[in-house]
Simulated scan of single mutants.
Amino acid sequence: MKRINIVNGPQNASQIILGCMRMPALNTDDAASLIHTAYELGINFFDHATCYGRDGEAETRFGDAFPKTGIRREDVYIQSKCGILSEKGEFNWSKETIIESVNDSLRRLKLDYLDTLLLHRPDLLYEPEQIAEAFDELEKSGKVRFFGVSNVPTMMLEVLRKYIRQPLVINQLQFSLDQSQLIDQTLYVNNLTSERSIDRDNGTLDYCRLHDITVQAWSPLQKGLFQGCFVDDPELPELNRVLGELGERYGVSKTAIAIAWILRHPAKIQTIVGTMNTNHLSDICEATKVDLTHNEWYRLYLASGKYLP
């Protein structure tokens, strides 16, 4: 498993993260087996959110299962996100909500502290002074070690960094061969003939690289937002042809090649995978054994429907 050192954050962190959103589908024993398998495959980073499952059920399942694995708490990184209040139909980054959410997560996860806490999707009414107070309180109490965000663009990051004393070390963003908006606009800049020239995020990836914020790519195999997996999708024959060709060359699956494409980017992106199937997880982790060449990376990018201007 490839490891990275997150600047000002977790060290020796696996480049593949197990996302636990779908963990409520497993019973406690199966969840323990999945966590243990992930750890044996080299994954030492687990991602949660307060909104995963009804009443935080994903965190509860993990909290019940983790003690059964025999893994030491200090040997893994456990991350959660807060701010999405689905039952109220709002995003909320108030001080009260952040602190209450962390306390609820720790209770469900049966933990004394979170390694990282991320603010989950932008609250349009956010008050950075309140966030700064919440982060200070959580850090001082030892309940959170590191802080970050999820799906946050550049200018909001600028505002947050003005008020928050702690470094923002992570930004979760959607990125994949199918959803490559993070890099598209750079290639098509000033090109009136393509909608890909539209700047959708004000250079968020480069901003994160400039300020030592590690990007965590979510939905790395999804078509669209949540339209299924693009691997073996008959509507994407060229992409799957190239995925298959490179998979044969490296002795891995198409899925592993799709993940390897993300890991090849020099930004040292972590990739969140959400499978609850241990065989599929093992297959995905083969991606870390693949080092795509410069040309192979571009072949996959072009096969996904882009073109060089």
Rank of each mutant, 00 (worst) to 15 (best):
N277V: 03
R108Q: 11
L160Q: 05
L26Y: 10
P10N: 10
D104L: 09
D212Y: 04
K2G: 05
E87G: 01
L173F: 04
E87F: 05
Y301T: 04
E129W: 01
I272G: 07
I16C: 12
H211A: 01
V231Y: 09
W261R: 07
I35V: 11
C20R: 06
G83T: 06
A31E: 07
T186G: 14
G228P: 03
G274K: 09
N277S: 14
Q222W: 04
E129C: 00
L239H: 05
D30G: 02
T278F: 03
D29N: 15
A31S: 14
S86K: 14
L308Q: 06
G203Y: 04
F62S: 03
C51H: 10
E245Q: 14
Q15W: 05
V252M: 12
F175C: 09
L117I: 02
P67W: 02
G19R: 12
T154L: 08
D64M: 11
S180V: 01
Y298E: 11
A260E: 13
K223W: 02
N202I: 01
N27Q: 10
L85R: 14
F66D: 01
Q185E: 13
R165F: 00
T275G: 13
C82D: 05
K143R: 13
C82Q: 07
C82R: 07
Y113N: 07
P128T: 04
I4V: 15
A303H: 03
G83M: 09
L263G: 12
E100N: 15
G247M: 07
R241W: 00
P153C: 11
Y250T: 04
L138E: 05
